[in-house]
Design a protein around this nucleic acid. Structure first.
Lengths: 229, 229
DNA sequence: GTCATAGTTTTCGTATACGATTTCGTACTT
DNA sequence: AAGTACGAAATCGTATACGAAAACTATGAC
């Protein structure tokens, strides 16, 4: 019979399932950085064998969410401030490129959606909820770069966001001051895109937008002792 | 205690071994694009079981060298011209960034080494050997970006080169005209770095250098679409 | 002659089992 | 008492085995 109707959700393979679950637990904070991921334990927990779990862990390793050491095991990747710096810097580059490449393909509807999100962010500034703000921030940028014609670059952007997500949600918790500027820069970016600005200009703007957040973080955490380059 | 000295070669795990072997065969051309990678067959061939082979294949999938379909199997990734375009475009961006970030850290010695490599390339133009030329080209750029302080970006650059490597060696076989310009642009790039040019300037130059190769390829393949290949 | 369908074969996905390696605890020596 | 060596426990790495899904093939109906 051809009706694929069966009850089981289309979860796909067990290793897929294990991947999704473990990743969710890392992002959500059930598994905190440094937490030791023991294959057998996770396998039992999920009701599967170690083989698919192993595969899931290796995938997470490739994404940088866990660190894996031969014959020793896997641990959830730390939130090294250095790692944060590297990730943000990389993201500023690939996201800038993705936004610039997407710009010509962004229609009025998408612009409107982005503006709506940005309006929510502005509201959010009142009774500031850093987690929500960060989520909206991702939504905003997603609208801008999801049309990126180059899937490789898009993939790199997603990896970057993933990495950040593992840093316990909210960037803006640490640097509330950035939130305000961020909303303004978003509007400026939208106007650039609307006006059909040069690709370089858009790329620069998108890149600066992110690296400004990084700089704010650095200034905050080092009390200004470290300047860029 | 510490006679950890000799004995087993430091080949690492079997899955590592399988990874290296299969990758080598893809790059070297033993497994041509479209080739079907059957786990059991490879496992027997390497004298290991399917489990480590499976892991190796998944790693190669993550790198984009093989395509994997659930319950169907893995095949060597094609040399889709589209893929080539995406890879080159992505590489132009990350390599440009890596070069710009590295530039301040490149000392006179490194510059000299790069010049030496470029000199070899210039020689190579006489009795043109595209494979050798491509290898030297990688050497040249390696000197420039290997000092990149951001390991993530450096990793992205390496991934890009890897992808390219799977396209059967020589880019310059298809666009011999580019080789000449390429050598000149290398020298210009070195002079920019030597003179301590602005990071943006260097990034632009490095990016254009690569995207010019891509453009040449596109022009060639559009113009020559009638001629055999 | 062509299409649909049932059966066979290939190949993957995962469970289980066992050997290998590391780590930790304990007892012994100095 | 401190350091070292030995042994036990934990955990990983890989082999083997079996069930499941897809691809292929052959047979029969129209």
């Amino acid at each position: 019979m051809t009706d694929t109707a069966v009850g089981s959700a289309a979860v796909g393979s067990k290793s897929e399932q294990a991947y999704a679950t473990v990743k969710a637990r890392i992002v959500e904070g059930t598994y905190t950085p440094g937490y030791r991921l023991v294959l057998a334990k996770i396998a039992e927990d999920l009701g599967v064998s170690v083989v698919p779990v192993r595969e899931a862990i290796r995938r997470l390793e490739a994404e940088g969410l866990v660190k894996f050491e031969r014959n020793v095991g896997a641990t959830v990747s730390g939130i090294d401030p250095t790692e944060y710096l590297y990730t943000m810097q990389t993201l500023s580059i690939v996201e800038g490129a993705a936004t610039a490449l997407s710009a010509p393909l962004i229609d009025a509807g998408a612009i409107a959606r982005a503006r709506a999100v940005n309006a929510e962010m502005r509201e959010c500034l009142e009774h500031f909820d850093p987690v929500r703000f960060t989520a909206l921030n991702q939504d905003f940028h997603s609208v801008l770069f999801e049309h990126c014609p180059n899937p490789h670059i898009l993939d790199l952007v997603h990896r970057g966001w993933n990495r950040l997500a593992s840093l316990r949600a909210s960037t803006f918790r640490f640097i509330p001051g950035r939130a305000h500027e961020s909303v303004q820069e978003h509007e400026a970016l939208l106007q650039l895109i609307e006006s059909g600005a040069d690709a370089d200009t858009i790329e620069q703007a998108a890149r600066r937008h992110r690296s400004a957040t990084l700089d704010a973080y650095l200034a905050q955490s080092n009390a200004g002792s470290l300047s860029a380059h």
